[in-house]
Design a binder for these strands. Structure first.
Lengths: 352, 352
DNA sequence: CAGGCTTATGTAATCGATTACATATGATCG
DNA sequence: CGATCATATGTAATCGATTACATAAGCCTG
């Protein structure tokens, strides 16, 4: 019951307060902050002092209302808990928040009815731009994000027909490099663990796999194609399937379309008595931090995650700030095959 | 050079458009949307039809300006890439965005100069509330977040002197349960791998460790105390230190203050020839998804991450919407010790 | 049936910034 | 020296919603 010391939550200073204190008009204060070079040296210092004394910060809602901006961008993420996207988000957040934008994260892993809400939000003009981290079209009952005619940039997943800028790695080339690495080690029986069939990402990684095999004159074998959906769980399932195979038809290597599945698979085949890489070499894709923590550490394609995020954000800012929708410009970032402990030459080579 | 079909990016409808179409005043439209019961049945249907026809959505900036709200909350998270926090964030995001709030994520793992920007943001009244996911005080040169007199809720880390609501698990009790589990298995030489010494979290988990030992009449041994900072890397370092110990003084069990360190440690001692749990039982803390993926799977304290996030968000919403700052209310959520493959009775028992 | 009361709606002030336009001052020049 | 122009500043409209207050219509009651 002690009476508190009045809790003076004084409302923040507004531009009029600053103007009064500096003895100028509100217009001058606004100009001083927006374009310092147009006010005289003397008033400028006076105004800036007043700004400091009142610890004035412009009210964002008022400004946004006036200039018809929201300073918000929507980021559509397939799954925020996925470490791969978490790091891309960091790159996005660094760049966007440095430029004063806030971000609304549309986590597509959440309840699907939220998806419509995000579409509405953007279509209602409550966001200045959209960053897509996946190829899949986001829509509500009757309209999709493109209806909003809002600047848009896509990252990670290349969308062939797109009319907006995209930034991603060369998925086909990277997948090809991964498989070629296995081939160069001497493997000829190389399985493939796919991602969700519907994604473009998946089709490209599959294409890279096929290309590498073809170049080496190795025939693709249907029984070596396993399908997953980028989750640890499907990696485990694929591992079980692999263990169920008779040793003589079992592949000596496997390329997984992402790291999480690769790690699930390795854990499972280990438990089943296969040794990685001795009995099975595994290459993953993405380069999540955990690929360097697991046992054995995972040879994988490392995507420049922060750079992907930062680059996409920079592109979007450019689009949002220049009047004319700049010519569509795609950016391709380099990905690197990082060799670790999950790959080695096939051990049965000598035996055969 | 094909001429596009005029790109009619018609500006979104405003309230006046709806009013005109429905043949009423703007006040009536606003009331229909805010408090439908005060307008007559007939006008209500007419207005709602007009809203639909124009696909009207209120301009948020205008509304926020008028009602002096921002509908933004700041979430301070130690590290957004840490999977533990990623899941808490999901809980927060679900609850907050369902209530119409946007969230600005202050990633404290980023460049420290950004920290001041977040303080300024809140102090300038650009956020309606703050959610703290860590105990450490966030401040700029001269002021901290508390100066802003903005509703505040803390989660995860209990802050003893706090005047705001908090929601977290019983860290002391959970740590004690973890260590007691090891004791019940028969271990008497139990090491402790700490988190960053400055955090309250750490002191509480250490206290739980000490309590459990004391209850069992086991003396705490200084040489069994190792210090880390919640990262995988320090787990690895602790693992090396453990390997360097002479076998006869080496502990048979270890309690790590979080999962990432536990996993790093296990990986390292494995590589050094120790088997987990055979030669060393390990218990972690947090229950990140990876604790169930690693090899061996990790016995750990599982925190209700989504619930922690959702609960904190709900508390904050309550604080932000009721005028009077409700009486401080702490919530304690249950944590569970989940037994997996990283713990077993000490194998040297028989030998000694 | 006048006065009071309820219910439904309209009028206009307001939130806090930005900025087009107007104005004032002083410099420049033929 | 008066016209012209550049520079610096002020005045007031504007962004789009919310809401206090005013008004009008209908109903009740003594």
């Amino acid at each position: 019951m002690t009476k508190r010391p009045k809790e003076t939550r004084r409302p923040p200073a507004k531009i009029a307060d600053v103007a009064r204190l500096a003895g100028v008009s509100v217009a001058t204060v606004s100009r001083t902050l927006a374009r310092p070079e147009v006010v005289s040296e003397e008033t400028r210092t006076r105004v800036l002092a007043a700004v400091r004394d009142t610890s004035y910060t412009p009210n964002i809602s008022a400004r946004n209302l006036r200039v018809r901006k929201t300073m918000v961008v929507l980021v559509a993420v397939p799954d925020i808990a996925n470490p791969f996207f978490a790091e891309i988000l960091q790159g996005i957040d660094d760049t966007l928040s440095a430029a004063g934008y806030g971000l609304v994260i549309a986590n597509l892993a959440g309840p699907p009815e939220k998806e419509a809400r995000y579409v509405d939000l953007v279509c209602a003009g409550q966001a200045d731009g959209v960053l897509l981290l996946c190829g899949h079209v986001i829509r509500s009952r009757d309209r999709d994000l493109y209806d909003a005619h809002v600047p848009l940039v896509a990252a990670c997943e290349y969308i062939p027909g797109a009319t907006f800028p995209q930034i991603c790695i060369d998925n086909v080339g990277a997948a090809r490099a991964a498989v070629r690495h296995l081939i160069e080690l001497g493997h000829t029986s190389i399985a493939y663990l796919s991602g969700p069939q519907s994604t473009i990402l998946e089709r490209q990684r599959l294409e890279g796999y096929r290309k590498a095999l073809k170049e080496a004159g190795i025939a693709a074998v249907d029984s070596l194609m396993m399908s997953g959906d980028f989750t640890f769980r499907t990696g485990v399932e694929a591992g079980r399937a692999l263990l169920a195979l008779a040793p003589e038809v079992r592949p000596t290597a496997l390329f997984a379309a992402n790291d999480e599945m690769a790690i699930g698979l390795i854990k499972t085949v280990h438990a089943g008595g296969l040794r990685v890489p001795r009995d099975l070499s595994v290459v993953g894709f993405d380069g999540i931090p955990y690929a360097d923590y697991c046992e054995p550490t995972l040879t994988t394609i490392v995507q420049p995650r922060r750079e992907l995020g930062a680059g996409a954000a920079a592109e979007l800012i450019a689009l949002m700030t220049t009047e004319r929708t700049a010519a569509r410009k795609d950016i391709e970032l380099p990905a690197a095959l990082v060799l670790r402990d999950s790959t080695c030459p096939p051990s049965d080579r000598g035996r055969n």
